[in-house]
Design a protein around this nucleic acid. Structure first.
Lengths: 145, 145
DNA sequence: CCGTTAAATTAGGCAAGGCTAAGTTATTTG
DNA sequence: CAAATAACTTAGCCTTGCCTAATTTAACGG
């Protein structure tokens, strides 16, 4: 069983790293320091630092100059944040918001949404998907400047 | 006309301060350093620092040991963030989410929602308010754990 | 009007997370 | 396989925003 070595604070920053790492792994099969850096648009040095910290916190296993793999704990957290991201994205897409705007807003909001709120939005999204007439009216209203 | 002296970055922190300051002014007629500190649950020293910075950025006028007033720019920003806060709160209330949870989530999310998204949620909120049957179904679904 | 207390400010420090520059390790390629 | 390049790490620094402790100013009660 995984042992919680360090008090994990789950900062937004940590969530961002985990999310990108899991996404890279899903997409290309691995996540190198340079990939993470490019993806987050920060320096490689910053990534090295954080990756070492995430290792110390037990969220991933890291071997210097070699590579990393997420631990069970880390992967669970990563999946969790990706799920929040996806759900918010789906919801806003339904409302007809521009993709760029969605990406920006979701990137900020995803760290601040708790499970009950997430569940409510989940239910709302699937209910709305069954109400095309209502959605059409909404979009017309919103698009008008 | 107001002159933008300093590149205003509008960090979440700045928005939090402005929001609380405007709320205090609306509620008790003024916002002292000690009030702001209590309201944000941070030290008076931190507030003094930030208030001096907000003065330098032209968001409020501050006289040492005396008091402060929001500038037009500052008040506009404050009203803007309060509006986002209120709108998100109304929306989540409609979904039947617990007040405590709403407060927590909104406090985090309000800094990351752009005007188009805000408008869409505004439209959705008022449309949903006209759909009590749909809302009832949603709440039932969400409350079931 | 003076002493006490409350409010505000200053000084100095700390943690998170970013950066650049310089050095080290891995990998690629002629 | 050796040199060049790419990837990575380390060291040292910066900014934001918070803190405590000490000091200064304002306000209030006798």
């Amino acid at each position: 069983m995984p042992v919680k070595t360090v008090a994990t604070r789950n900062s937004s920053t940590v969530e961002d790293y985990l999310e990108r790492i899991l996404d890279l792994i899903n997409t290309k099969g691995y996540a190198r320091v340079v990939d993470i850096a490019n993806s987050l648009k920060i320096s490689q040095a910053s990534v090295t630092n954080m990756v070492q910290r995430l290792d110390a916190e037990g969220l991933l296993k890291y071997e210097k100059y070699r590579g990393l793999v997420l631990t069970t704990t880390g992967e669970t957290l990563a999946r969790n944040i990706m799920h929040r991201h996806q759900l918010l994205t789906d919801f806003f897409k339904l409302l007809g918001i521009d993709e760029q705007v969605i990406y920006h807003d979701v990137e900020g909001m995803e760290h601040h949404i708790s499970p009950p709120t997430l569940r409510a939005l989940e239910a709302l999204t699937s209910a709305l998907a069954r109400q095309p007439a209502l959605l059409a009216k909404l979009r017309k209203q919103t698009d008008a400047h």
